[in-house]
Nucleic acid binder design. Structure first.
Lengths: 186, 186
DNA sequence: AAGCAAATTGACTAATTAGTCAATTTTATT
DNA sequence: AATAAAATTGACTAATTAGTCAATTTGCTT
């Protein structure tokens, strides 16, 4: 693995465990097995490092989430597919998921980075918008709907991460999905 | 207002705005209008300060949330009362609410503090447990149910804070409550 | 093998910050 | 008014840390 990758991976782990401010760059480089200067060769600053990390994770997530979406026929099954994909990604990339939860609103993530990350979800926003128009889900503004949806999605994901054996339990997967579906459906 | 109060109030504001590690004690004392030493007279360390802040806020919240609960007759109306109280408190104590959201899982809050804070919610946990036993809400374990409940409650609260005019809109209050109720009801 | 650019190194610096403590002021008691 | 106790002060210290830079190593091209 090249040094840039090693730095990113180590930083991800340490930022999660100790937070941004409590992770000295010296510790990142030490655990990554490189010199302190190498970090600043690849990233202009500690802030740039965490912003790059943010976008890298977001890209990985967005690629997964839409996987197989066009094979689903009903609106409900599309949402359920997103639900499964999101939880699946989070179980396969737990560090990345926890990183988002901790830093999605942190001030060290720049406005530009955050906007760029958000734009990757446009297709899902359109899907939700369609669901409202077709009167399948409750008629509220898109902003409110997506806030609630994400909150339930994330709460469920946390629960699956804490209880990984449930991932193969189709009954619980359906039960937990219904907490989301019943909430939003008309 | 005595100096201890001033320090707590200033710390609350600054911790919210800049985070724990990016708020020097010197800044807290300066903005509170006291000397740096005074902070360490009342609190053994910066950590003790934030832990005291945490428990103070939690006490305020728990007092509000159960207000008038015994006057409600049905299970649904009890949950709705809690919903209104929680949102009402958060609109009246926005700094305190945001403080919780930011620091409820932060490592600077000690295990003892967190447990002490959690114990104040016991009566509400029992209420939810009753709801499951009486088959009014979905039959899942208590831990999962309360996680989901809190997630939806917090997401709604954020939305009301961002759109304070909605607090008097009874129609939206009912609509938004139904996102919670429909999610958990059988 | 020679020559060159890019990557890597780590000792060092300048800045920041939690917490101390001896001196001073305020408050309460007789 | 005299005395003691408690609260307050802020200059200071010891420790930490982001980022620099001149020196060295590595890898590539001819």
């Amino acid at each position: 693995m090249d040094k840039r990758e090693k730095i990113l991976k180590t930083a991800l782990k340490l930022f999660n465990r100790y937070g941004f401010d409590n992770t000295p760059t010296a510790r990142i480089t030490k655990e990554a097995g490189v010199a302190t200067g190498t970090l600043f060769n690849y990233f202009r600053s500690k802030e740039e490092l965490i912003n790059v990390l943010y976008l890298t994770c977001k890209e990985s997530l967005t690629r997964w989430v839409s996987f197989g979406l066009d094979q689903e026929t009903t609106f409900r099954s599309k949402i359920k597919r997103i639900y499964r994909n999101y939880i699946g990604w989070s179980l396969d990339h737990t560090e990345e998921f926890l990183f988002f939860q901790q830093f999605c609103n942190a001030s060290c993530i720049g406005e530009t980075t955050r906007k760029e990350g958000l734009s990757k979800f446009n297709n899902i926003m359109e899907l939700i918008s369609d669901g409202i128009d077709q009167e399948i889900i409750k008629n509220v503004n898109l902003d409110y709907m997506s806030t609630l949806l994400m909150a339930i999605l994330n709460a469920n994901t946390y629960y699956f991460i804490d209880n990984p054996s449930l991932a193969d339990d189709e009954v619980f997967l359906e039960t937990s999905f219904n907490f989301l579906w019943d909430s939003i459906k008309k």
